[in-house]
Design a protein around this nucleic acid. Structure first.
Length: 276
DNA sequence: CGGGACGCCTGTGAGC
DNA sequence: TGCTCACAGGCGTCCC
């Protein structure tokens, strides 16, 4: 599925080509997670500004004819979504639910499972965008997220560390796959209470989250290109997981057995040998 | 208020 | 081979 690296790769791929593009038409398919929230016609004539990313959300600012900021679109790819910017404009397929036709091409959101979203907001810091982004934690590569800040945040949480990572209110971007992989890299058991992780191990975990995301960012392009199967793991990424999806296989680090457990109704993979 | 369950949705693949 | 059905999961929402 699109994780933070894929979303960032998407952002980079559409930012430059779309900047300054004028909206010709907005076509809506089936409703995604929420309705757009504004009549599609109202977006006509707006000009796209620099595309931003916050967590796994993309923000397409729109400028009015006078060049002043005039709202924008908050996009999310959910589980199965993908964005494509194309120069042709074939009729939308059954899974194409949002078309932004512009002078620089067609931005099309395809999302079979419709966990994604395309929502209009008056500004990034106004509702509904503000409300949706308000629960997000630090960006993983935010320099303000120091080892000490991360450790202090974990100290405040009694839940299992895997769930704290998944919740995204301490640091965003560690989805199920990356949370499992980062915990393995850091040698931390996914069920360990977050507040029982010491400063050194917290620092190791933060580094592991960053390393994992950075590595995925490197191969994110290919993950995107290959994004086809239901689990979104057909890319280079799948080949690199050390525990995720590898139940009963040998741990590449210690030779222990990779286990699968369920936490909050989600699969967690970890090595029973070297994660404590 | 923290923590966890639930539900949205459909392609996939295991099992019969 | 064709069908059924559990499973995958981001994340807002709801309930305890």
């Amino acid at each position: 599925m699109p994780e933070l690296p894929e979303v960032e790769v998407t952002r980079r791929s559409i930012d430059e080509p779309l900047r300054g593009a004028q909206v010709l038409e907005v076509r809506l398919g089936k409703v995604l997670r929420w309705p757009l929230g504004v009549p599609a016609q109202r977006l006509q004539g707006r000009v796209v500004g620099p595309v931003q990313r916050r967590g796994k959300y993309l923000w397409l600012p729109l400028l009015g004819a006078d060049g002043q900021a005039d709202g924008g679109l908050l996009l999310h790819l959910g589980m199965s979504g993908s964005l494509a910017l194309r120069q042709d404009a074939p009729p939308p397929g059954p899974h194409d639910h949002f078309d932004l036709l512009t002078t620089r091409g067609l931005l099309r959101l395809t999302d079979p499972r419709r966990f994604g979203a395309a929502v209009w907001s008056a500004a990034l810091d106004r509702d509904p965008a503000a409300r949706l982004l308000s629960t997000l934690g630090h960006e993983p590569f935010d320099p303000l997220l120091t080892d000490a800040v991360f450790h202090a945040a974990l100290k405040r949480r009694r839940a299992a560390v895997k769930l704290v990572l998944l919740a995204g209110d301490v640091v965003v971007g560690a989805g199920n796959i990356y949370a499992c992989e980062a915990l393995h890299r850091a040698g931390i058991h996914p069920r360990r209470r977050a507040d029982r992780i010491g400063p050194a191990r917290a620092a190791a975990l933060l580094a592991a989250v960053r390393d994992t995301l950075a590595r995925a960012m490197e191969v994110g392009g290919s993950t995107l290109r290959d994004f086809r199967d239901a689990h979104g793991m057909s890319g280079a990424f799948q080949a690199e997981t050390r525990v995720y999806g590898r139940e009963d296989q040998d741990c590449p680090r210690c030779g222990g057995i990779v286990r699968r457990i369920v936490q909050a109704q989600r699969s967690t993979y970890y090595c029973a040998g070297c994660q404590t």
